[in-house]
Amino acid sequence: MELDTDLGTFLKSRRARLTPEDVGLTSYGTRRRVPGLRREELAQLAGVSVQYYTRLEQGQSRNASDGVLAALADALRLDEAERLHLQALNAAGGRPIVRRRTPAERLDPAVRQLLDATPDVAMMVMGRFTDILAWNRLGHAVFGGHLDFGAPTRPADRPNMSRMVFLDPHMRELFVDWEAKTEEAVAHLRMAAGRYPDDPRIASLVGELTVKSPRFAAVWASHEVRECGPSVKELHHPLVGSLTLTQLPLQLPGEPDQRIVAWSAEPGSASEAALRLLGTPVGTVRDVQRQP
């Protein structure tokens, strides 16, 4: 599958979400054949010629200058994640497509020690294409208790968070606002696709999810991009019920493609008590649930 991560497609998607009123232009009420800004309107806002912008959007001009990218980003009201994505797509467009796999990801033993030393916080390490490289016991209990705890240590069996979100019924039930979680997952995956458009693994993952999940196909077509940031998640866990957890991603020094994601509960809350219960052996949790 060819990834639709080219610069022109992204520019068109961002142009389509803006109206003349959004950017301070006068709209005279004339009927528009397509939603959003016209090419000539965006070119005017960015200070480039309509001809040049058209060639850029159609893929006839490659590797735009930093100044042009900045002007387009300003005109399109892009946030920081979208600007980074725009730069990545522009850089990729200036080189021939050569499918090559990026190096295998390895986990620093110090990171594994950190996960094991933090038993009261659910934690996992995610790689460049949302593979789960490691989790601690509590992270496994919250998100993957139905999976083998040792699976992340075996590359062939390694769980992938994007695949789980869309294809694993457990995740569909776990996230109360599953649709919002799917949007977040796709936005993060698009960032990865922009950084590594030539890696066949990202093309394979996107192709698989597009075929198997209509929801993924629909959200992928929106071209939203977003860095993983702090957020609050409402979960419904099959063993302990409702959980309100704060998600905090932490970039690993020296590993730009890896991040620890931690989920914690407010001290003294029912969610903290539920997490503590999940941290006990599974049989103990079920025994407690059976008590009158």
Rank of each mutant, 00 (worst) to 15 (best):
M1G: 12
M1H: 11
L3S: 13
D4E: 08
L7H: 06
G8D: 05
G8R: 06
G8I: 14
L11N: 02
L11W: 10
R15G: 09
R17A: 09
T19P: 03
P20E: 03
V23W: 01
L25A: 14
Y28V: 02
R32L: 04
R33L: 15
P35N: 01
L37Q: 00
R38N: 10
R39Y: 10
L42W: 02
S49P: 10
T54Q: 12
T54K: 05
E57A: 13
Q58N: 13
Q60A: 13
R62V: 14
A64D: 02
A64S: 04
D66L: 07
D66W: 00
A70I: 06
A71H: 03
A75T: 08
R77S: 11
L78T: 00
E80T: 14
L89F: 05
A91K: 12
R100C: 11
R100L: 11
R100N: 09
R100Y: 04
A104H: 05
E105P: 02
D116P: 04
A117Q: 10
A117V: 12
T118V: 15
P119I: 14
V125N: 07
L133P: 07
W135T: 10
N136F: 00
R137D: 12
L138K: 06
A141Y: 04
G145K: 07
H146R: 06
L147H: 11
D148T: 08
F149M: 08
F149C: 02
A156C: 02
D157F: 03
R158Q: 07
L167R: 07
M171C: 13
M171W: 09
L174D: 01
W178R: 00
E179N: 11
T182F: 06
H188M: 09
M191N: 07
M191D: 02
A192R: 01
G194Q: 08
R195Y: 06
D198V: 06
D198A: 15
R201C: 04
A203K: 01
S204Y: 02
L205C: 08
L205V: 04
L205K: 00
G207M: 04
T210M: 01
P214W: 11
R215I: 12
S222Q: 14
V225D: 04
E227W: 09
E227T: 10
C228K: 13
S231E: 06
V232Q: 09
V232E: 12
L235C: 12
H237M: 03
S242F: 14
S242R: 13
S242L: 12
T244Q: 11
T244G: 07
L245V: 06
T246D: 03
T246I: 00
Q247H: 08
P249Q: 09
P249S: 12
Q251C: 03
L252I: 08
L252S: 04
G254M: 09
E255V: 05
E255R: 11
D257I: 06
W263Y: 15
P267E: 13
S271D: 09
R276E: 15
G279W: 10
G279Q: 04
P281L: 00
V282S: 13
G283D: 13
R286Q: 15
V288I: 15
Q289C: 11
